[in-house]
């Protein structure tokens, strides 16, 4: 509730949208920012500790969970964890077989990692908004934004990695000549006068893909998180569970779809990188 701490609703929402940032203060010392102005002064050379921490914790959780299931796998009667992991692996393997037309052993594990990791990061949305920040506030941590995918740094990091893989496999499969040829001659055909137009269009197409991937995930997750924060900020405590529960049900669908769409588009883009025209 906002009134308990003497904050206005706007301040409460702003407090929830600020990352725990570590960087260089204006006076030259290094430390954690205690206000939005200090974050602005730190500029580019700053790191969002909460985003990094939560995404690494969730990534480690994913790896440990799946590793555990793989080590304990039996050919006898499988347990619940093994069933779940086998189901996930099988579903994603089928999707990759259907929509990826090249030959590459990296794609299925990549798709599994992207899906489960993004799903876990999005699922932090469902934890009540004040729960973890209040806990950390007991130890004097000023800000804590628990959903890593509401930070554009994470989504752009993921999508730019996908762009690098796309360029790498384009060059690896088609050769450097094939890749540049695609950039120079693709939409309009092989003509020396059309090279500038071709180059412009193809470069735009290449750059827009990661931007739309990242902004899609970021926008959806931030919108969902904002609805939760607004529910927590505007309503009295005794009725909050009702809209919270209703939105959580819808949001459960959204977080799964967004993780799925990110994975699907990654597979499709990488498949396009493997095809020669």
């Amino acid at each position: 509730m906002s009134s308990e701490h003497g904050q206005t609703t706007g301040e409460y929402i702003q407090h929830h949208l600020t990352n725990l940032t570590y960087g260089q203060h204006a006076d030259g010392s290094w430390g954690i920012a205690h206000s939005a102005e200090e974050v602005k002064e730190m500029g580019f050379a700053a790191i969002n500790l909460d985003t990094m921490g939560w995404s690494i914790v969730l990534g480690a959780l994913f790896i440990i969970l799946f590793r555990l299931a793989a080590r304990k796998a039996t050919s006898g009667v499988p347990g619940g964890l093994q069933n779940f992991v086998e189901y996930m692996v099988e579903v994603i393997d089928n999707i990759v077989k259907e929509s990826f037309h090249g030959k590459n052993d990296l794609i299925a594990p990549l798709a599994l990692t992207i899906f489960v990791w993004i799903f876990l990061m999005n699922a932090m949305d469902l934890v009540p908004v004040d729960f973890i920040p209040r806990f950390f506030a007991l130890f004097g941590v000023p800000y804590m934004k628990v959903v890593p995918s509401t930070d554009p740094n994470i989504t752009f990091g993921l999508s730019i990695s996908v762009l690098c893989l796309m360029i790498f496999y384009s060059i690896k499969v088609k050769g450097f000549g094939g890749f540049t040829g695609e950039l120079l001659f693709q939409p309009f055909g092989k003509n020396i006068f059309l090279i500038p137009a071709n180059l412009f269009l193809e470069t735009m197409g290449l750059v827009v893909k990661p931007i739309s991937l990242a902004l899609r995930l970021y926008g959806n997750m931030l919108a969902g998180e904002l609805v939760f924060i607004i529910i927590a900020a505007m309503l009295p405590l005794w009725i909050q569970w009702l809209p919270y529960f209703a939105w959580a049900l819808l949001h459960l669908l959204i977080i799964t779809i967004q993780a799925f769409v990110f994975m699907m588009l990654t597979i499709v883009y990488l498949s396009m990188a493997h095809e020669s025209h």
Partner: peptide, 19 residues
């Protein structure tokens, strides 16, 4: 569901910018 995810994206981005 895939198209629902794609469709949702741009309106969600606009909504976030507005909020």
């Amino acid at each position: 569901f895939i198209i629902a995810g794609l469709l949702d994206a741009f309106s969600a981005i606009a909504a976030v910018m507005g909020l």
